[in-house]
Design a protein around this nucleic acid. Structure first.
Lengths: 358, 358
DNA sequence: AGCGTGATTGCATACGGATGCAAAAGCCCT
DNA sequence: AGGGCTTTTGCATCCGTATGCAATCACGCT
């Protein structure tokens, strides 16, 4: 079965001479592009066969495929994804819209998404949304690149933008964000309400009497949902509602300010870890309060710093890996047309990590 | 409201249906793609004109361009980048290869790069390299997507991989990494040697007698260069060389361990901030040493956490914005063929930030 | 040996735009 | 009014693959 390489090759001089890694690449144009046609001519077959050799499940004899793949390897041929995308009307590109990369939670999300997408055969086209802006601005560009799907994380997408996207028959997914209002988009997020409840229960179990909640950005579903869960527990038990402090944004500095303004509280639940870390520092270094002796602090996300000895922050861990896996699975289902028309909304449970700050 | 597209909006009915009687060609296909040809037919002009209307500097009458752009706006036409890339032999995509996103320094780099590239008309194709792996694995894929250039950050690229890339006539840029050995690649990085020197001088000026250096990954140029600069100052002054501790990797935990193993030192220079933060916590919480009274600590990078009250870490700030700007400028120069064949290597100075830990 | 079938392969064309070249318009001047 | 030019347009082709369809091939069976 030894794949015979046509010895007659093309040119005379450099012939096949084996692919010597030491020397510069020969026989290949300086432009570097070996096309399927060139390979085909070389092997005396049609360009179609080259294409089929690289298409899993295509109609092609095993021997032929082996011969082509070997030759491709030798000449350094790889299908041009751009051309393939045009022809196949599918780019294998997924647009990833991100904001708030300054919150360490998101780089982790980004990394896992990137890996998962790569593993699933997609490439990641990254868009960064400047703080405070909506993701809508990225949509036209994403459309021009004909991405197969869009994942919007940590940024908001207006209903109009969402509708527009859907109108194109493309797939969009909100990650860690719920659609605002009747947005007909898929979404995968953490069970923020449940997480808020766990936080409330933990503080109550700890015997805290004067709890408080520090809200993040008011226009984020994460903050609102965590708040709702937190307050619900107190309401259900007939307890006075916790105090509520508005941090306004998800930043260390905002958390710091919020804690300084928190007044007399003995249990703080912050909308996320970055806020909580700022708050923790403010309590200890700014107000001289002892944590957890005098005040309990709970955050949300479980960013790496939460586990550092300087903080030992109790928090609600988001199941990022599972959320990413679910997202990619959903995208694949959508792209293969297996998912129904109704939006898929999934919530994964948060887990309470009890650390020293509680 | 979304732009509805009445079939006879502009022309007197597309009823003429011009070309193909077999398949109806509605102005807007269900897929959502309005093509240049459709728009052209609609306006009674040639497809070429549509293309030119969107090409700055193309030969087209201002009035014609305005008419086309208006119609495009109304119908939601946008040039298909995939098709344009194929035709123009240029994708406007830049591959960004990243690793170590767990080091907060890199998300910031990523964000700035993404923004700068977007502003320069490029899109970012992101590749994530799992820790410990070389960036080489991403190259074939990047080649298949015909990216215009590659930026490799916080990951290493083998000489072979580099040479291969160059052979294609493509442009590659090492960011914050020097080429290993005779790598003929462009590189833009911080002046790590100079930064190391500044650290040494700062510790000496502080009167520290038993300095130590905590190295990061041995295979990174950043760690080696910072170390070289640090040691050079002592050597030049005829002082005993500082103690050297091998952290092995750039992580909080490694820094923590290194500080615990640091023995009797009164001045620690860590290869980067993440290590330094781990070290700081180990010194304070693990060994009960007071910083800066008993020990001075200096890091490198200036990640956001370094400024937090819990740390107040003195560090060497990398001029990220300037480095990114220089990188994008270089890429543009390369792509427009303005840069010479010799690799461009640039070093931007680090700035010492004196904070409480010094 | 002839035929039926399923497996392979080649052909031709589509995907959506960009662009060299030549035809068609304008413009200015004598 | 006609000639010499400069703009504008349209035409035809190309970019590199994928794929429907028809042509071939390889075999097993009667």
């Amino acid at each position: 079965m030894a794949a015979r390489t046509p010895p007659e090759a093309a040119g005379a001089g450099t012939a096949s001479a084996g692919t010597d890694p030491g020397s510069d690449a020969p026989a290949v144009l300086p432009g570097g592009a070996v096309t399927a046609r060139a390979l085909a001519r070389r092997l005396g077959v049609s360009q179609s066969m080259i294409s089929r050799a690289f298409s899993p499940g295509a109609s092609i004899a095993p021997a032929m495929r082996a011969r082509i793949l070997a030759a491709a390897e030798a000449l350094g041929y790889r299908p041009n994804f751009i051309a393939a995308s045009l022809s196949r009307r599918r780019s294998s590109l997924v647009g990833l819209v991100m904001g708030e990369l300054s919150n360490p939670f998101y780089p982790a999300v980004l990394e896992q998404f990137s890996q998962a997408l790569q593993a699933a055969g997609f490439q990641t086209l990254l868009f960064t949304v400047p703080p405070g802006q909506e993701a809508d601005a990225a949509l036209p560009l994403l459309r021009q690149y004909h991405v197969d799907a869009v994942v919007v994380t940590s940024a908001s997408l207006s209903s109009a933008g969402a509708a527009h996207w859907r109108g194109d028959g493309r797939s969009a997914l909100l990650f860690n964000r719920a659609g605002d209002g009747p947005t007909p988009l898929d979404s995968i997020a953490c069970d923020n309400v449940g997480g808020g409840r766990l936080a409330a229960e933990a503080l109550l179990a700890r015997g805290r009497q004067r709890p408080a909640f520090v809200a993040g950005r008011a226009d984020t579903s994460t903050s609102r949902e965590r708040e709702a869960g937190f307050f619900a527990v107190f309401a259900e038990r007939g307890l006075a509602p916790p105090r509520r402090i508005e941090a306004g944004e998800y930043s260390y500095a905002a958390g710091h300010r919020a804690a300084l303004a928190a007044g007399d509280t003995d249990g703080l639940f912050f909308a996320n870890d970055i806020l909580a870390l700022g708050g923790l520092d403010a309590l200890r270094h700014g107000r001289g309060r002892r944590v957890p002796e005098e005040v309990s602090v709970i955050g949300f996300d479980d960013i790496p710093m939460a586990a550092w000895p300087a903080y030992e922050l109790a928090t609600l861990r988001q199941p990022v890996a599972a959320m990413v896996a679910a997202s990619v699975a959903l995208l694949r289902a959508r792209l293969s047309g297996q998912a129904g028309p109704e939006p898929h909304r999934q919530r994964l449970p948060a887990e309470l990590l009890r650390r020293a700050s509680l």
